[in-house]
Design a protein around this nucleic acid. Structure first.
Length: 681
DNA sequence: TGTCCTCGAGTTCC
DNA sequence: CTCGAGGACA
């Protein structure tokens, strides 16, 4: 694209620059405040380049509020201070409904009101509070909250934020205005930013808030200009002219002046409406495109606010109702090596109990030594804990400043903490493993639990506590021993009554009727999970041919390569394992021979991904029925997926399906595909 | 040899 | 859900 020629005279240039600024500001506003661009990026860039060219040729035409100034300026050596004319106070917090009811009652008492108070409710964004000072409509200074009275001067950085007007829109603007708001990075922008950093081999940000904080603290505002910051205003600190009589009205004015006002902000009449607003927002928390850590309620009437005034720390007319924290800080009491079914030793952080997302967390896995070193977690450290994927706690970072002086890195023990066997890390493997095999009671417990698990033999009532006791008292050494358990032995265990013992014995009896894939899977052969077990069963039809199969024959099975084949062959060559299998058969464990292949089946070869909650069946039932008709169900969506089945509140998989243009079925469509009848059970 | 996909395995709390 | 690693395929 060729840039237009420069204007001939300074006079023309001045008019053209003026017009360009107006134009660019307008497009900025459309794009960054309303997410609604009117022109293409290329057109926008071309306007920008033209203005830059003019300003470069006639430097005296450059103004402070020119959009070209958003690219940032050369680094400062440090931040200077700004003093807030009107302090940026923190807000009182509410943690439960009663706190909010009390807040409302106090207000009605102070105002001597009987009826409902009008409030404005708004999401409390999890970012950084910033104050922007405008003089005659032009941004002159920006400061962080700091301690509330004095903050850091981040004017250069805030100028680069596209949703901050450098000049207020409209004609009637106050001579002096102090706008308050929150700087955040929106979730989608955050993900994009981290992907970029991953590509550039830079350290990833732990969360959007840290990323926003880091971006604002850049001494080089050119760097800040590259970060996707968004400014949402939540009010006015000080104004040289009165701004009407309601907070909602002030927000309308701010929107007119070109600020981004959160779309969720609403007027609420009475405290019950506030509670409903809160509940509704908690519900939708995940679908908002920015992180929030609470909901703020403010008295709408400005005169009433005046009357209520301030305590020493916070305004009496506002309160922040906190959401259950999803990230919390706590101390690592110890790092404990835990031995799993396969002998893999996993370092687990024993945490000082802390509430995260509504539950008390006291343990978090560190996965393996690589991960532990990457995060550099040590016993005694203060760490941040988050619940990833809504359930599993994860340590996201360490506060190095609070690390004890005498702290030392944790080392993997050289002998197994359970059985004392040697611990080795195989070449090219991440994990350290206990070499004890079934000598190690941790591995025996794991093997028995796996054998009894739902997807294997599905033995009801055989939980962790029971298996631990059985193995530790040497009542059970292998899965086969389970079937010779008798009532008195079982009833003698801790936490085992007469009735539960009966149930367990009955469950064992029933579990003997199984299927070959379940049985194979239950054996716990390395690299043989559910799918591979199914493939083996289909290919060989019964157990004996598998026992006899050579590695070369095993490799013929789909999804089985040299590594898996070797693992299977070694397992069955081990005399101990053959003994266990024989003992299981002697105990009456049996399965029907697997009939031919299922390629002809109605859903033969089709792959499905399930997401969200189905109403008429569980995911497992759906999976079983799809597989019963020859389809397969996998966990993640790819281009090879034939259908995605979306239930209630489907998540990221659904988005992915749409982006890959994979057909999406709703539950009804699935049921029809499965033969039109509802699940029989 | 490199690049997808899948699969396996481990994970916390109630 | 997430990670690591095995298998399929170009």
């Amino acid at each position: 694209m060729t840039d237009p020629a420069l204007p001939a005279t300074r006079d023309q240039a001045s008019r053209r620059a003026e017009a360009l600024r107006k134009d660019i500001d307008h497009h900025n506003y459309r794009y960054y405040v309303h997410d609604d661009p009117a022109i293409s990026d290329a057109e926008y860039d071309s306007l920008m380049r033209e203005l830059q060219a003019i300003e470069a040729h006639w430097p005296d035409l450059l103004t402070r509020d020119s959009p070209t100034q958003r690219v940032g300026a050369a680094p400062a050596s440090q931040f200077s201070q700004v003093r807030h004319a009107l302090p940026m106070l923190s807000l009182d917090n509410a943690f439960e409904e009663q706190d909010l009811l009390d807040f409302d009652r106090r207000i009605r008492e102070r105002l001597a009101l009987n009826g409902d108070v009008d409030y404005v409710g708004e999401p409390k964004l999890d970012g950084l509070s910033v104050s922007l000072r405008y003089e005659d409509g032009v941004l002159v200074e920006a400061g962080t909250r700091g301690d509330g009275r004095v903050g850091e001067d981040i004017t250069a950085n805030m100028r680069t934020v596209r949703s901050v007007p450098l000049r207020l829109r409209g004609e009637r603007v106050p001579r002096r205005l102090d706008v308050r708001g929150e700087v955040v990075i929106r979730k989608q922008d955050f993900e994009h930013l981290n992907r970029q950093r991953l590509g550039a081999d830079q350290k990833l940000f732990a969360n959007p808030r840290n990323a926003a904080a880091g971006s604002l603290r850049q001494l080089d505002s050119r760097e800040t200009a590259r970060r996707p910051l968004t400014f949402f205003t939540f009010g006015v600190g000080e104004s040289s002219e009165p701004l009407g009589n309601s907070h909602a009205g002030v927000l309308d004015l701010l929107a007119e002046w070109g600020f981004r006002v959160n779309a969720e902000i609403g007027r609420l009449s009475g405290v019950e409406a506030c509670l409903a607003y809160y509940r509704e927002l908690v519900e939708r928390r995940d679908s908002l495109d920015y992180e929030i850590d609470g909901v703020v309620f403010k008295v709408d009437d400005l005169e009433a606010r005046e009357a209520l005034g301030f305590t020493s720390r916070a305004p009496r007319w506002a309160i922040a109702y906190k959401l259950p924290a999803r990230e919390a800080t706590t101390r690592v009491r110890a790092i404990l090596p835990s031995v799993g079914r396969t002998g893999v030793i996993t370092p687990v952080a024993d945490l000082h109990p802390v509430e995260v997302g509504g539950v008390i967390v006291s343990r978090a896995t560190l996965h393996n030594m690589d991960e532990l070193r990457r995060k550099d977690v040590r016993p005694g450290d203060q760490v941040m804990v988050r619940r990833a994927g809504d359930v599993i706690p994860e340590i996201t970072g360490v506060n190095l400043e609070l690390r004890p002086e005498d702290s030392v890195p944790w080392e993997m023990p050289t002998t197994c903490p359970v059985c004392g066997s040697e611990v080795l890390r195989l070449e090219d493997e991440v994990d350290y493993r206990c070499q004890g095999g079934l000598v190690c009671s941790a591995q025996r417990i794991g093997a028995v639990l796996h054998f009894a698990s739902r997807r294997a033999l599905d033995i009801d009532g055989l939980g962790e506590k029971i298996v631990e006791q059985l193995v530790e008292r040497e009542l059970v050494k292998t899965p086969a021993d389970l079937f010779s358990l008798e009532h008195p032995t079982v009833a003698g265990l801790d936490r085992m009554g007469d009735k539960s013992a009966d149930n367990l014995i009955a469950a064992l009896k029933q579990a003997r009727e199984t299927t070959l894939p379940r049985f194979l899977y239950g054996l716990g052969i390395q690299h043989v999970g559910e799918v591979t077990a199914q493939r083996l069963a289909e290919h060989f039809g019964d157990l004996d041919p598998i026992l006899r199969a050579s590695e070369d024959e095993l490799v013929q099975v789909p999804d089985v390569g040299p590594v898996v084949a070797q693992s299977i062959a070694h397992f069955f060559a081990e005399p101990h394992n053959r003994d266990v299998i024989q003992a299981l058969r002697d105990a009456g464990v049996r399965w029907p021979v697997v009939q031919g292949r299922r390629d002809e089946a109605p859903l033969g070869g089709k792959s499905f991904v399930l997401t969200g909650t189905l109403e008429t069946m569980t995911r497992d039932e759906a999976k079983e029925r799809i597989e019963g008709l020859g389809g397969k169900v996998t966990g993640s969506v790819s281009r090879k997926t034939d259908y995605v089945v979306a239930g209630e509140s489907a998540g990221s998989k659904l988005d992915k399906a749409r982006s890959l243009e994979v057909p999406v079925l709703d539950e009804q469509a699935l049921i029809e595909m499965l033969g039109g009848q509802e699940s029989a059970s």
